[in-house]
């Protein structure tokens, strides 16, 4: 019963956080300066009537909230308008229908744009994260077990180096090296191959994803390695490990049965949180490798004041992070018996 109460409370908290994010999301983009109808377009052909018509089409002529016509510039309006006809409630109503609005820039539904980009990002970051986790954990274990030897120092220095490299710089270096070896320079797939069998298409995507994944892995592996190493070192210093060694257990048995289970706890939390941020995409990598992911979409949308896309993307990221945190919380409390469900 206690466990169910705990679970329910966590889920309820997450739900309210998401609601809060929804409202904040909306207000944030209405408070930013700029009229999306004129964003960036400086051309004498754009007449006032066209600007007005564009604003009407996007519903920007409606009041933001009751009593507020617009937030930036701050203009008060009528408090007696039908609340369902304000931008805020139209936004909520659309969300309930699963619609995230229409992009100001391309007139496409935001949900379509984000879905396309989301899968591309998940593919890239997913591959990168998995490799980073596996390699980071392995090197972390190695370094901790061989603490204060040459292997440890080498692993430590190279991890710190890798983690501190600017992502875009490493990306550009790998791009230049990779392209001279015949790897593609960017993009997700070579255009014009959609008539080929699926296997060949995937092989093509594989060639394109190689360098960005490599960049991601190198940079993020360091973080996992360091956490794993320090966590394992803590555990290995415990008395019961000494006992295990005295009992005559070999390395593998000690690690498997005694050390790793305890050392993995901080790592599990870290992995869950990082996976939450997966959705935000690796902006620098996507920009360097022209990978059509969510990070790139956000970057372009910011430049163009494409608020619906930004709203949709931020909502996606927030929900993803909140859910990941929820999973981390629950996993941690399941794995660690010391954490009592209150």
């Amino acid at each position: 019963m206690k466990r169910y109460q705990f679970l329910l409370r966590k889920i309820a908290w997450s739900f309210f956080t998401i609601l809060f994010v929804l409202v904040l999301n909306f207000l944030l983009f209405r408070v930013l300066p700029g009229d999306p109808a004129r964003a960036g377009v400086r051309d004498p052909r754009l007449k006032q009537e066209a600007i007005e018509a564009i604003r009407v089409r996007f519903g920007l002529d409606k009041p933001v909230l009751n009593c507020f016509q617009s937030l930036n510039p701050l203009r008060l309006g009528s408090c007696t308008v039908n609340p369902l006809d304000t931008q805020f409630f139209i936004y909520i109503r659309n969300l309930l229908h699963g619609e995230m609005g229409i992009s100001f820039h391309s007139n496409r539904p935001v949900a379509d744009i984000l879905t396309e980009r989301l899968w591309n990002t998940v593919l890239l970051i997913g591959a990168g994260q998995i490799l980073a986790i596996v390699l980071g954990v392995v090197f972390g274990i190695l370094a901790a077990w061989k603490a204060r030897t040459a292997i440890d120092y080498a692993a430590l220095i190279s991890s710190l180096l890798a983690w501190s490299l600017p992502t875009f710089w490493l990306g550009i270096i790998l791009l230049f090296w990779g392209s001279s070896q015949g790897l593609p320079i960017g993009g997700k797939a070579t255009p014009g191959l959609s008539s080929l069998p699926l296997l060949q298409q995937w092989a093509d995507i594989g060639r394109h994803i190689l360098l960005p994944t490599l960049t991601y892995t190198i940079v993020y592996m360091g973080e996992y390695m360091l956490i794993m190493r320090s966590s394992l070192l803590d555990v290995l210093a415990e008395d019961y490990i000494l006992t295990a060694k005295a009992k005559g257990l070999n390395t593998f048995q000690i690690l498997k049965d005694h050390a790793l289970k305890n050392a993995m706890l901080p790592l599990v939390t870290l992995i869950a949180i990082n996976l939450g941020f997966t959705v935000a995409g690796a902006l620098q990598i996507e920009a360097v490798f022209s990978w059509p992911g969510l990070g790139g979409a956000i970057y372009e949308a910011v430049a163009r004041r494409d608020f619906p896309v930004l709203q949709g993307a931020f909502l996606l990221i927030a929900v993803s992070v909140i859910l990941a945190n929820l999973v981390a919380d629950l996993t941690y409390s399941t794995l660690d018996p010391r954490v009592q469900p209150e």
């Binding site: 791009l175 392209s179 001279s180 960017g186 255009p191 360097v288 490798f289 022209s290």
Partner: peptide, 20 residues
């Protein structure tokens, strides 16, 4: 004819150098 989009101009320069 294929028009391919590159997110940054350095990639463009590299693309024509390598013949992509």
């Amino acid at each position: 004819v294929i028009f391919q989009t590159f997110e940054n101009k350095d990639a463009l320069v590299q693309a024509i150098k390598t013949g992509q």
